[in-house]
Design a protein around this nucleic acid. Structure first.
Length: 104
DNA sequence: AGGCTGACCTGTG
DNA sequence: ACACAGGCCAGCC
């Protein structure tokens, strides 16, 4: 799988995240691990930073539910509008967390 | 090749 | 809950 294809796969998965739900960078990396041969949460972060426009990037947060640096305000507003459970400035992963295998 | 950096993660204290 | 350390994979000097 070429780097470009990997980027596409990541973006495609992010687009599948249902409204009101979120996934962590690690979960995304993990979900594509077998198919891509890669498994690095950092890559996902890098990809979102460079190619995140065009997909619901605000639905991807880190494992503690913290929002992406520099975009907290934007992300928080969008998540709030979608009804994602927030505790202060963090997403409650336990409730909003989503995984592609799980029924939507 | 070698070192540094990053929208990360997990385990410890 | 917060701070730190080690591990992680790619990209860029």
């Amino acid at each position: 799988m070429t780097p470009e294809e990997y980027v596409e796969a990541v973006l495609a998965l992010v687009e599948r995240i249902p409204r009101g739900r979120v996934m962590s960078y690690g979960a995304v990396a993990d979900a594509l691990a077998e198919r891509s041969g890669r498994n690095s949460p950092r890559q996902i972060g890098g990809i979102m930073a460079r190619h995140g426009g065009g997909v619901p990037w605000h639905r991807v947060v880190n494992s503690t539910g913290r929002l992406p640096p520099g975009h907290e305000r934007e992300a928080r507003a969008r998540l709030l509008a979608e009804g994602v459970p927030l505790r202060g400035d963090r997403v409650v992963i336990g409730e909003a967390g989503w995984h592609p295998d799980a029924a939507e």
